[in-house]
Design a binder for these strands. Structure first.
Lengths: 224, 224
DNA sequence: CTTGACATCGAACATGGGTTCGGACTATAA
DNA sequence: TTATAGTCCGAACCCATGTTCGATGTCAAG
């Protein structure tokens, strides 16, 4: 009973739980999940949670609020930090996966800038960008594979709403309800999102359905 | 407001939360704490929890069941043993492209270790590897595209002749006369070279026609 | 002795949050 | 067509759980 094809919803739920856990230290409630993944009824969330339990991807404590636990849960190994003297310290603010929006700058956002969540980035990788606007995301899932970004990669982004043609950006597609990394090309009233992998076809979206969240400055991948 | 003397109760509470968290993956309720630490009234537990928050040992999410989080007390791991406390300086010894062998270690090799050819790599990307054995290559051409490595990327390698199954390695294929990056699997008398991109087929080569040049530890990509 | 800060207790309150159930929709098979 | 399984909705139910408050006991300061 392992790894059957998960529905998009189930993936979203799993991703959300993971992110919520990392952000808050405790699991979300059924209703919180429902709101995040855009499910109207708590029973549907419940239904899908039980599915995930069947698939051995989740454990539940019955009758217990927030009684969720991810299996294979390695406690989000904090990226080791070193001396802030050299290289820049960039906040690792979360993960990026298909169908989940990025955390947005503002309000309580700076709250999470813990030392544990800072990651060192060599100066030469980011040029002269203002370190204030930088943040890092860890990529989960292989949804970015067509952008030459693999699971586990860390992408360094500069927070900005507008992009120039050719930029690699993280965009929120309101219609599809997902975030991806793509090369950005504004063409008339619409936007062409070009995968980095030349063998794959671009996708076209109306300009007002696209929400640029940041521009990718660098990618760091660690093997093993 | 730090580290005043904690009462025995408060210590017990803290200990219990920690244990409970490790056991269950989610924090305990006030009543669960009360029972464990032998406190009769929920209000007393509540009272002491707020004390712990004052002491910066705990965080609480108001109105949230199990809304507890231990503040991260444990220092983030001893890092950077080989103390250039910042990132390591790794020699950028050349480029890698299809049909070109890598420069081999030896003789006058150290000669080229010019300051200009050193590149900074964050410690966290290479773990505990001996910096002596490290070198970096810039990728040219898109021959590595099926290994999720693009033109212009910099790969950090550890010089070694033998590889373990699953390692990503730079290999020299004597027969084909080219070097590529692939995942390495020794299977009987031959070697399976598995592209990182799961949609692509592996290639098989006789073991004695394969020459491992180094193992890839990390990949760094700079956009723009 | 009186006062007040501190810790505790017990009880009541309000709502947060898991559970259940009937019904509707879709898709595939018979 | 009918049947069946999978998924989703909305509403109701009700216990779990955080919050609040008045009362009690303790102890050191005045």
């Amino acid at each position: 009973m392992d790894q059957p094809k998960l529905s998009t919803r189930q993936k979203n739920i799993l991703d959300f739980i993971q992110r919520f856990l990392a952000d808050n230290g405790y699991p979300p409630t059924i209703r919180e999940i429902g709101e995040a993944v855009d499910i109207a009824s708590t029973s549907v969330v419940n239904y899908n949670l039980n599915k995930l339990v069947e698939y051995d991807l989740l454990e539940r404590a019955p009758e217990v609020s927030r009684g969720l636990r991810l299996v294979n849960n390695q406690p989000t190994m904090p990226v080791s930090v070193s001396d802030p003297a050299f290289g820049l310290q960039v906040p690792l603010v979360g993960k990026i996966a298909a169908s989940m929006p990025l955390p947005v700058a503002g309000e309580d956002f700076g709250y999470y800038y813990d030392a544990d969540d800072m990651i060192e980035v060599p100066q030469h990788m980011i040029g002269s960008a203002d370190s204030q606007d930088l943040f890092a995301l860890r990529v989960t899932g292989d949804s970015m594979i067509d952008a030459m970004v693999a699971e586990g990669d860390i992408v360094i982004l500069k927070r900005q709403e507008i992009a120039n043609n050719g930029d690699m950006v993280a965009v929120w597609l309101t219609e599809r309800g997902e975030t991806t990394l793509k090369h950005y090309f504004h063409e008339g009233g619409r936007v062409r999102l070009q995968p980095a992998n030349p063998t794959m076809e671009p996708i076209y979206v109306d300009a007002d359905k696209v929400n640029v969240q940041g521009r990718v400055l660098a990618v760091m991948r660690t093997l093993h």
